[in-house]
Design a protein around this nucleic acid. Structure first.
Length: 862
RNA sequence: GCGGAUGUGACGGAAUUGGUAGACGUGCCAGAUUUAGGUUCUGGUGUCGCAAGGCGUGGAGGUUCGAGUCCUCUCAUCCGCACCA
């Protein structure tokens, strides 16, 4: 029996289910129930992503313990879950805040540490001033915290990191092979990893004016013995500062080594260590850095931000051209977070460099002759100076003005330039990634404690496995800002497992994205590697697209890391073979004439307009948006279930829109779904008292009904498999209409009606399990409908004996004919031509050609 | 700017490989049932036209006997990334 691991992203226990959950879990349930009916061994578990900030916020606001708050919410939500009739395996349930779970996570952390996948470093990190914690790069959206929405600040802190970049190449190549993932998500991950091939190289320092070599200058610095009258003091002081940071020169990364001959300056990020060193001794540099930081935080109009530069007194040597030196600028458009935080600029072939060069009047030397003749014939090529360029040229072409690279195509020139740099031992060809290591330290209480101990003697010591889990203390207070674990009087004090001396526990907890990075493996088995290997990977994962980068990237990393420390037998390292990202549930928004958002329940229709109930405030309908508390356009699943029933809610959220798109919740739509439930019931009700001993026969009416049922069951089957639930539902609607009409038919189709009804109940189970079960037992179905196998479709019934063919004349439909399935092309052609309405169109014109596609169409060309 | 999508009735959306555009649902219209409203049921509903017929899948071209579907250009909307060297 093949296995099918069906999983929906587990919820955060906020306390209430929302319609988005209903849609998400309804979809997963359709897949799980369908797979089960098709004979798969199905795993469909559920649990709780239970660590997180809201619990701490509740603790601060209401004085409840985060754990109590969380477990109460879990109870409340589980009750809601149970009403939905989902085929979940609750025997595997856990919450990530269970010590069993996070203890195991701590063990994994230590395994990763042993393997060298974890390290600690002092780094500039994203600090969320509202949540009072650090955020990973992925968790900063548009310069704001992903949860709090507060503008992120930069702080320098010692932090724990996971070496996700070790897997950058693998994460990138493998994501492209996940053919059951949405293209969009694959691209987003690929872009996030951001691979680029190029050259990392060093521009060596030019000695200050007055010295013939760097050695000589250095010696002078070292002995503090130099004659200020001999040198340009600014240059001299700058170089002295810079040498302390980097004696070798400036390391840059470029993807365009082919344009090295067009270099006109080198630029450092304002956050580059050399920039910082210069700022310490020169207030102008400090001012410039401050200026840049200002713009950096007002993120929105980075596009409009003008290029700004500060000219240092530093100069570096051109790697290829003897005696040519380049000035070094600090430039606001160079990011410390990418490459080495320093670039060489070729203004003729990079727009940013171009803008900068224009502003500061630096040389612009074109070195790529465009292959496009029109552009190439422009005046600037002739001038060879680029004085007439109005924009950088970044297209294809051949190299010029470049000594040994002249005449080559760009690609060839790149590799030759890299070769030359390598020969001169100035650098090497490298691959650079945008992805950076995952900072996992969080200064929060309600998370998984990082299981290490800081000892003055022994340094960082892992907590021995026998001491796991490192439990969170229960007696914590949230009355002051910052990390409650840090404030706790005793918790952090311990003895070093190594030397036995007093030591301190790490008080940072793990980013909660760790918790969701391996929970699916825990579902598969608590600790049996063989059972995990059997279930993994997840065959169908269903969840929101908002996790396209964060959760899905981390989980992919975690499986690789777990594989490499021998914790999971998953050669590919890919946790999710199939991914489906569902759309949101939206609703109209309502605003009163005095500018308040109000809930759908507070709106009534009166005098042909919309009004707030029991007031005289007119209501206007706003945009259709994702249900949110702020816009008050929320529909509560509990109310819907009380009014319409769980089946109706499930049916409706799947019916109108394709699953990957947003669906708008409407009252009338929900009522329509409720009507349909009644309609289905009436079909079964009509059969409940009918005699069940109808004999099979092959009357036309019976055969037609059987065809309809088998075709519909087949269509539902295929639509579910292809995640086209809205189409499956449309097929069911048609099917029910046919069965309803058959109630008027003669007695001799009763057996076909029963056959259809049994098949229908079975096909309805994935969508409306309660209704299907009732209907099934109403007509005497054996056992549980949900335990029955998917109906066998009689393939012979899917093919019609005769087919209706449209007849086109010159490509326009003019008539229809009915012919036997087996009719020959000649017969079809003859029948078509004999059709009177066709004759009208042909009249006296001569027929040029007749195209007959059997089973499809006839086209007569005149 | 780069990347990914999406454009079809009043609305959500259907439409194997190019082969009857508008399935199904909502809304609307009409009729039946009902003491009324609601419910339920039946029929109708792309558009212009009395009709014959014409026109119609964001727009403009093209390929084809035949295009929502393929090609070229273009417009609009949404999403992601964004001074990525």
């Amino acid at each position: 029996m093949p296995k099918a691991y069906v999983l929906e992203m587990f919820p955060y226990p906020s306390g209430r289910l929302h319609m988005g959950h209903v849609r998400n879990y309804a979809m997963g349930d359709v897949v799980a129930r369908h797979k089960k009916a098709k004979g798969y061994n199905v795993l469909h578990p559920m649990g709780w992503d239970a660590f997180g900030m809201p619990a701490e916020n509740a603790a601060m606001e209401k004085g409840v313990h985060p754990g109590d708050w969380t477990y109460q919410n879990i109870d409340a939500m589980k009750a809601q879950f149970e009403k939905l009739g989902l085929s979940l395996d609750w025997s595997r349930e856990f919450a990530t805040c269970d010590p069993d779970y996070y203890g195991e996570q701590q063990r994994l952390f230590l395994k990763f540490m042993e393997k060298g996948l974890v390290y600690q470093k002092k780094a500039k990190v994203n600090w969320d001033p509202v949540d009072n914690t650090v955020l990973a790069n992925e968790q900063v959206i548009d310069g704001k915290g992903w949860r709090s929405g507060a503008p992120v600040e930069q702080r320098e802190l010692v932090q724990w990191f996971f070496r996700i970049t070790d897997y950058a190449e693998d994460l990138l190549t493998e994501v492209q092979k996940l053919d059951r993932w949405p293209e969009k998500v694959r691209t987003m991950q690929a872009n996030w990893i951001g691979r680029s091939e190029g050259l990392q190289m060093r521009f060596e320092w030019e000695p200050p004016t007055g010295f013939t070599s760097l050695d000589e200058a250095e010696q002078a610095f070292a002995q503090d013995d130099y004659d200020l009258t001999k040198v340009d003091s600014c240059e001299y002081e700058d170089l002295k500062d810079a040498l302390e940071v980097s004696a070798q020169g400036i390391e840059i990364f470029t993807t365009r080594p082919d344009t090295l001959f067009g270099a006109s300056f080198v630029a450092l990020s304002p956050d580059h260590p050399i920039s910082i060193a210069l700022a310490e001794s020169t207030s102008e540099v400090e001012d410039f850095r401050a200026e840049c930081a200002k713009i950096g935080t007002s993120e929105a109009d980075i596009e409009q931000a003008p290029k700004m530069g500060y000219k240092t007194g530093l100069r570096v040597k051109h790697p290829f051209v003897e005696d040519q030196t380049l000035p070094v600028y600090i430039a606001n458009f160079v990011l410390m977070g990418y490459g080495t935080g320093a670039i060489f600029a070729c203004p003729a072939h990079d727009q940013r460099d171009f803008d900068f060069a224009r502003k500061y009047d630096l040389p612009i030397l074109p070195v790529v002759k465009p292959s496009d003749k029109e552009t190439a014939s422009a005046a600037w090529v002739a001038s060879g100076k680029g004085a007439d360029m109005d924009a950088a040229y970044t297209g294809p072409g051949t190299i010029m003005n470049s000594d040994f690279l002249d005449g080559q195509e760009i690609a060839a020139a790149k590799s030759q330039a890299i070769g030359q740099i390598e020969d001169r031992a100035l650098g090497q060809g490298t691959v650079n990634y945008r992805l950076r290591d995952w900072g996992v330290s969080r200064q929060r209480y309600w998370g998984c404690p990082i299981p290490v101990i800081h000892c003055e003697e022994c340094g960082i010591v892992p907590v021995p496995e026998s001491d796991l889990p490192v439990r969170l203390p229960d007696d914590v207070s949230f009355d002051k800002p910052g990390n409650p674990l840090e404030h706790h009087p005793t918790w952090k004090h311990c003895t070093c497992p190594n030397c036995g001396k007093p030591a301190l526990r790490e008080t940072d907890t793990l980013d909660t994205f760790n918790d969701s990075s391996w929970y699916f493996a825990r579902f598969a088995s608590v600790d049996d590697p063989a059972e995990r290997a059997y279930w993994l990977p997840v065959d169908q994962y269903v969840g929101g697209v908002e996790h396209a980068v964060l959760h899905l990237l981390y989980a992919r990393f975690f499986m690789r890391a777990m594989r490499d420390v021998g914790e999971v037998d998953l050669p590919s390292g890919e946790p999710f073979a199939g991914l489906f990202t569902q759309g949101m549930v939206t609703h109209e928004t309502y605003k009163t004439d005095d500018d308040r958002w109000i809930t759908p329940g507070e709106v009534e229709t009166r005098d042909g307009g919309l009004w707030e109930i029991n007031t005289d405030h007119a209501v206007s309908v706003g945009a259709i948006e994702k249900m949110s508390k702020s816009k008050k356009n929320v529909v509560d699943p509990d109310n819907i279930i009380a009014t319409f029933g769980a089946d109706t809610a499930r049916w409706f959220v799947l019916s109108d829109s394709p699953p990957e798109r947003d669906v708008e919740w409407t009252q009338s739509g929900a009522e329509g779904a409720g009507r349909f439930v009644q309609r289905v019931w009436s079909v079964f009700n009509a059969l409940s008292t009918a005699p069940r001993d109808g004999q099979p026969n092959d009357s036309d009416a019976a055969t037609a009904l059987r065809r309809a049922s088998h075709k519909a069951a087949d269509a539902v089957d295929k639509a579910i498999e292809e995640f086209r639930f809205n189409s499956a539902i449309a097929s069911v609607h048609e099917w029910v209409t046919v069965l309803k009409k058959a109630e008027q038919g003669a007695e001799d189709i009763l057996y076909a009606r029963f056959e259809g009804a049994f098949m229908l109940a079975r096909c309805l189970t994935p969508f409306m399990p309660h209704l299907a079960e009732e209907c099934w037992s109403l007509i005497g179905g054996e056992g549980l409908c949900s335990a029955a196998a998917w109906p066998d479709v009689d393939q012979s019934l899917l093919v019609e004996d005769s087919v209706t063919l449209p007849i086109q004349v010159n490509g326009k439909r003019r008539a229809e004919i009915s012919v036997a399935k087996t009719a020959s092309k000649d017969d079809i052609e003859a029948t078509a031509l004999a059709e009177p309405s066709v004759q009208n169109f042909i009249a006296d014109k001569s027929i040029k050609k007749v195209i007959v596609v059997p089973g499809r169409i006839v086209n007569i060309v005149i």
